[in-house]
Design a protein around this nucleic acid. Structure first.
Length: 588
DNA sequence: GCCGTTTTCGGCCCGACTGTTTTCAGTCG
């Protein structure tokens, strides 16, 4: 049993206890699950148990006598008695139901006990039949909200987050590359374009012996079911429900096939029309002049042969990239790996899992040169948001850490920051005097997501006019597949960002990606500076920065558009200049 | 159920908001 599976069962257990109103245990199980997830797949608990027994398990923070017993039982037989008892009492699909916004443990319990609702389909039927509104503490409005949440869920059904699928796709890629005779094995489709959500996994391979790579593919441990199995195309369903297709094509067609299978469909339609205009025909095997292939080896060859500069996969959305490529006007996209510091990082001062020093060390190991500690502020009492006094204390800790880093000659700096809450009226939940002492202030909306468009717009703009606010974090507040973005006038906000010298964030958390690509493009066009942040709550989240760079690239951003591609010194310079501008600028 | 520079028991879950109510349960993060 993997750590992930163990953590999942513990999380379910937390929900079960919450359903029954058991105090404190849910958080204890939650905490243990977090700690186990944090171990990652490289330190499997079953190995720890084999080596050191139950006492070994208890070295994991949050795992005590009771949970260690449960883990032991899970390692032996895949489940544990208490879990089985609760699962029998509540035979419901917890993940499906709690995936709906507004549905928590208590609602799941009521739904099951009163209406025998076990899963999403059942919930949908009951809501459509108007049965929900009759339940205690449920009304017509709640029922309507539920239906809306389910619809949102369904619209995104089958589409998974890029951040969840990308590591899996890469793993498969690597496996297939290891097969004898394979020259290329590469993920194409929406993953290669780094679209924010993914329908399936398309893999392209060239190989001397196609049978071997097909065989390897259907024998991957993740494969749950083989849907199609032929000499050039094989399709499987993976254990996570995602479909994966493998196509094997001749080496000579590699470039044309990669271009064809990368898409988007709309982009390819235009490229094919260009080919036709030149008396050529483009398909996955090549670019043809009657029966002669004129370009097929590489994508560059194909694009050049139809009169275009090479177009990066992220740009292939049929939204002006072809015209730009024809005119030699494509942007010089920000390269992967060019973010030098992370400006939104949570620590164990609030809802992060690690200390400031741990996060700094983890960031440094990933090649970053600085980070900003931006714990939540007091309005988010849920996560123990910092008040002015605690923030000052945290500042002293950061000062001490920086002194230590400097003394040790470590090229890494920690900025004193904050993720300060934008209140309903656009004021902030920390006093200016406290903000003034920080190196950097990010402001964010965490409440009142449903204000009217004009109120929401005015609220955000007012926050930007505060001279201490340097960045608006995750500006739209959306959570992909779960929460709609706030309704506000993005163009007006971008205009205000330009006027106030406020940067806008690309929050790279896989389910946020906020700003999204089209907004980034607007901001870039308006000359507004961006920052790319991981929103890390634990060290491995720094890996998300790559997803933020992908969004920036999809939004046509260059290195110069993104502040944290600069050095620590450059960033500090920009911050003080922008603040100066806000302090001197016209106040309203 | 876990934990300990507030230590072996008594804290931990802090508060705003929504939608339902007529005083508050449930969700959010």
């Amino acid at each position: 049993m993997t750590n992930r599976q163990i953590a999942e069962k513990l999380r379910h257990m937390a929900v079960f206890y919450e359903m029954d109103g058991v105090p404190f245990r849910p958080q204890a199980y939650e905490k243990a699950a977090d700690a186990i997830d944090a171990l990652g797949p490289d330190e499997p608990l079953d190995r720890l148990f084999a080596a050191k027994g139950r006492d070994g398990l208890r070295t994991v923070p949050g795992v005590g006598e009771g949970i260690a017993h449960h883990i032991e039982e899970m390692i032996r037989r895949g489940t544990f008695r208490e879990y089985e008892r609760m699962a029998a009492k509540y035979p419901v699909n917890l993940d499906e139901l709690s995936g709906i916004e507004g549905v928590g443990p208590k609602t799941i319990k009521t739904l099951y006990q009163k209406l025998r609702i076990k899963d999403l389909a059942g919930l949908e039927r009951a809501a459509a039949a108007g049965k929900i509104r009759g339940l205690p503490r449920f009304g017509a409005k709640t029922e309507a909200n539920l239906i809306r949440s389910i619809e949102l869920r369904r619209r995104s059904a089958g589409r998974r987050l890029l951040g969840d699928i990308l590591p899996l796709a890469r793993r498969i890629e690597t496996e297939l590359r290891g097969v004898r005779g394979v020259r290329h094995a590469v993920v194409a489709g929406s993953i290669r374009r780094r679209q924010e959500t993914i329908g399936d996994i398309d893999i392209l391979a060239t190989a001397a012996g196609p049978e071997r790579v097909m065989e390897k593919f259907i024998r991957l441990p993740e494969v749950a079911e083989v849907l199609e199995h032929g000499p050039t195309k094989t399709a499987v369903r993976l254990d996570n429900g995602v479909q994966a297709d493998l196509r094997v094509i001749p080496e000579a067609s590699y470039g044309a096939a990669l271009q064809y299978f990368t898409g988007s469909k709309e982009h390819n339609v235009i490229v094919r029309k260009l080919a036709i205009a030149r008396g050529l025909k483009l398909n996955e095997y090549g670019l043809w002049k009657s029966r002669k292939s004129v370009a097929a080896r590489s994508e560059e060859d194909v694009y050049r042969a139809v009169g275009l500069d090479y177009i990066e996969p992220e740009l292939r959305t049929a939204s002006g990239e072809i015209e730009a490529a024809a005119a030699g006007g494509l942007p010089d996209l920000i390269p992967y790996g060019s973010v030098r510091g992370d400006l939104q990082v949570q620590t164990d001062w609030t809802d992060g899992s690690h200390s400031i020093a741990d996060m700094a060390e983890a960031a440094r190991r990933r090649g970053l040169e600085y980070l900003a500690v931006t714990d939540h502020t007091k309005a988010l009492a849920m996560v123990g948001g910092l008040d002015e006094k605690k923030l000052a204390r945290q500042g002293r800790e950061i000062d001490a850490l920086n002194r230590r880093l400097e003394k040790d000659g470590v090229n890494f700096r920690v900025l004193k920051g904050s993720e300060v809450d934008i209140l309903r009226d656009g004021s902030l939940d920390l006093a200016d005097a406290a903000l003034k002492k920080l190196d950097m202030v990010g402001a964010a909306v965490h409440s009142h997501f449903h204000l009217s468009r004009s109120e929401q717009t005015a609220r955000i703009i007012r926050a930007m006019k505060n001279p201490h606010v340097d960045i608006i974090f995750h500006p739209t507040g959306r959570v992909i597949n779960k929460r709609e973005p706030c309704d506000f006038d993005m163009e007006a906000v971008i205009k205000a960002a330009k006027a106030t010298g406020t940067a806008l964030e690309i929050d790279a958390a896989p389910d946020r990606l906020d700003l999204k690509d089209s907004h980034v493009r607007l901001a870039v066009r308006a000359g507004v500076k961006l920052v790319i942040d991981s929103d890390a709550h634990r060290p491995e989240h720094f890996d998300w920065l790559e997803l933020g760079v992908a969004v920036a690239r999809r939004g046509w951003a260059a290195t110069k558009d993104v502040l944290n591609t600069g050095s620590y010194r450059d960033l500090k310079k920009w911050l003080s200049k922008a603040k100066n501008k806000r302090e001197k600028g016209p106040r309203k």
